[in-house]
Design a protein around this nucleic acid. Structure first.
Lengths: 231, 231
DNA sequence: AGCCGATTTTTTGCATTCATTTTTTGAGAA
DNA sequence: TTCTCAAAAAATGAATGCAAAAAATCGGCT
């Protein structure tokens, strides 16, 4: 089993999406991260006892956390048969990417309504940084900047509900997204850069509807890359 | 205490809307419906014991259900202070309507890609039915048709993930939406009808991007009506 | 009388326990 | 050997029990 112990003290208070006055359910965050990071094999059965030992808690709070993660769609909870890491079918992937596309499209539209010049400048800066990574063919740095830009747009939308929803879906496809980006994304690197130019351009002009279209299409193209990867 | 009693015998085994291969967590559905229907006052404290008696279960499964509903954003869970029905601030309302707008915009875009003539015909039929209610100033029937049309568009998108997300958010604003529609919507009834004409037109032409804009704006206008209502 | 603080009561959070259900293991027969 | 079926072992779903925290109650003080 690939489960590795976690630092007892290193519990992440975590920049939770919307931590509220959150209680000891840092456990949910810890478990979510644990799964998202890929510490559990896809479709693998997850005995409660095992996780209890890992996290040093009893079954009651663990089960509560599992229910929450199941509601988020991260795991499946089969009656009397335990929890397993949800496997993403090709269909699931298609759906998730499209929903992400819809959320980003929304974020772009809203961002255009209220983004400040300073925020745009910040995004531009990250964009240029990303461009330098692109020129040097440094995939990892490029990817980081890419993520950062998308996150900044979502934040610029000024809608905490959207941010939380976005974060939730982002978590669900993070693993796949990672590998997909690292692999096939390479082939359309130039194309992706051009798309990002267009995104920035539309953002500067505060062309919400246009930006909305571009972002959705951008995610569509990402989806195609990911799908090609799976196949 | 503002919690009002429920019928003692009226325990809902509940035909769960979308239970999946779900287990006895019809409880979550039951509780969610119970809250969405407005049986608990806004911001009211919800003692666990009380709900246990109401639903005839012990605290363990109830707490699991509460955690799930908290994750959905329907209730707040304060550490050591129990659960309370989440109060929707004006800000929350703004956010929720915009997210709904984004989801509908996405649904429209996706629907244009794959909707069949038969499905369009069905929507048209409901639209005409709605128009008749409009002419007769029958608010309730109009409202039902309205909901049905939006639901059909979401379904036509052919994205179960989107449908589930949409349903979740719809639940969160259902109460407010209801009152808002019944009250202020009246003033912009004609406007809403015209918007629906435009929606149908764009759908017929499979103009995804355009439909996306119209639907978002449509929800924006609904939002304004709701906000005016609150103020 | 009104206000503040301590004690009692209730409630929450979690661990433990119990009853079912499932899964595994093992024996016997084809 | 392999298949089938039964018994044992383990895991799940839910109830109960216990310690800690909050709320409520009561007594003392200004």
């Amino acid at each position: 089993m690939e489960i590795q112990p976690i630092e007892p003290g290193a519990t992440p208070a975590a920049a939770a999406p919307r931590p509220a006055i959150s209680l000891h359910d840092g456990l949910v965050t810890a478990l979510r991260d644990y799964i998202v990071e890929g510490n559990l094999a896809d479709g693998a059965r997850i005995p409660e006892r095992l996780l209890c030992d890992r996290f040093g808690i009893s079954r009651t709070p663990l089960r509560e956390a599992l229910k929450v993660l199941a509601a988020e769609g991260l795991i499946d909870l089969l009656p009397n048969r335990g929890a397993r890491v949800r496997e993403l079918s090709a269909e699931d992937l298609r759906e998730l990417f499209d929903v992400m596309g819809g959320l980003e499209a929304l974020a772009g539209r809203l961002a255009c309504e209220r983004i400040s010049d300073a925020e745009i400048a910040e995004i531009e800066q990250t964009h240029h940084e990303m461009y330098r990574f692109y020129l040097r063919r440094e995939m990892h740095g490029y990817f980081q900047c890419n993520q950062a830009i998308h996150r900044m747009i979502v934040e610029a939308a000024g809608n905490a509900t959207l941010s939380a929803t976005y974060a939730s879906f982002a978590g669900r496809i993070r693993r796949v997204r990672y590998s997909a980006n690292l692999a096939k994304e390479r082939d359309r690197w130039g194309e992706a850069m051009r798309e990002h130019e267009a995104i920035l351009d539309a953002l500067r002009r505060r062309a919400g509807s246009e930006l909305s279209d571009i972002l959705f299409q951008h995610l569509r193209n990402k989806r195609k890359a990911a799908q090609a990867e799976v196949a």
